[in-house]
């Protein structure tokens, strides 16, 4: 078992005729992902690397029975691409696109709340269940199948963490990059619950960063729902304090969002906090041994 995707997931690629879309469609297919179609309005009927291109998500769903979509379209068109997936009840939507306006995401969030779809991203590297399937842009070869679940707000920092796990012979069940935007579809709390329920996952690695309130919510969730060991690295301890935005931001978050504050809150929730990304494997191994 892994979470959200596996070898049976049937994926369509929105924006498959673009530079990034076509390149990554091939990379994903080469990794073993079932790429069943691509969508670019007005370009239906073509084939890209043997993958049929269709005009709409509806057409793609009818013809391919896809159950996941990955989006590589430019920011201006990303909202409509996501809304089209939601309207067609695609269960998993992964949006790689960065630079989507915040109010567009407010609209997306509203549509998601009345839907059966889950959105990962935007502005994210995607997700991978090693040895089974990858949906996104991460380098497949640094991963290894195993029992560690990885969830992160970052891209390359996640690769760094995964790489250290892999060279220490600690494979991963699923690695998921949530995305760096203010408004995202899937958050730490959602993934923590999925990893807790997943029988393959024995331990969880969280990679967080300065800003926002997600790590704090994750800490609450871990206290209440997560019995598996969790290790975390929080980036941004040396970052200069953020430029402030009026008073409203502080009133809304009503809590500290520095890296140090987040580390303390997670530590209080029983999470193993490391100073360096390469300390995660040893720290987790020690905790897993302790539990027998």
């Amino acid at each position: 078992m892994s979470i959200l995707i596996d070898q049976n997931t049937r994926v369509i690629v929105q924006g498959i005729t673009g530079r990034d879309g076509s390149f990554h469609a091939k990379q994903m297919a080469d990794y073993g992902t079932k790429i069943v179609g691509g969508v670019t309005p007005g370009k239906g009927g073509q084939e890209i690397n043997g993958i049929p291109v269709l005009n709409s998500v509806k057409e793609a769903k009818d013809k391919t029975s896809c159950d996941a979509a990955v989006i590589y379209v430019p920011a201006k068109f990303a909202k409509d691409a996501i809304l089209e997936d939601i309207a067609n009840a695609i269960p998993l939507i992964v949006c790689i696109t960065e630079g989507i306006p915040v109010l567009d995401m407010v609209e997306v969030k509203k549509a998601l709340s009345h839907s059966q779809s889950r959105l990962v991203g935007p502005n994210c590297p995607g997700l991978i269940s090693p040895g089974k399937a990858k949906i996104g842009i991460m380098p497949g070869h640094i991963h290894k199948s195993g029992d560690i679940g990885v969830v992160s707000r970052s891209g390359t920092l996640t690769y760094e963490v995964v790489y250290n796990l892999t060279i220490n012979n600690m494979g991963q069940s699923t690695c998921i990059g949530l995305g760096g935007d203010p408004i995202i579809g899937t958050r730490f709390v959602d993934v923590l619950k999925l990893f807790q329920e997943d029988p393959q996952t024995k331990a969880i690695v969280m990679v967080g960063e300065i800003g926002g309130g997600d790590e704090q919510l994750a800490a609450e969730c871990i206290k209440k729902h997560v019995t598996k060991p969790v290790a975390a690295f929080i980036a941004g301890r040396s970052a200069p304090s953020g430029k402030r935005m009026g008073h409203a931001g502080a009133i809304i978050s009503s809590g500290e969002s520095t890296a140090d504050a987040k580390m303390q809150i997670l530590r209080d929730a029983g999470v193993i906090i490391v100073d360096f990304p390469d300390e995660i494997p040893q720290a987790l191994t020690a905790r897993l041994k302790l539990r027998g």
Binding site: S154, G155, L157, G236
Partner: peptide, 17 residues
């Protein structure tokens, strides 16, 4: 000089530590 914001922050943190 780093690729990716998260790794760039992680690198700065490591330099500091």
């Amino acid at each position: 000089i780093v690729n990716g914001a998260g790794l760039a922050m992680g690198t700065m943190d490591t330099v500091n530590l």
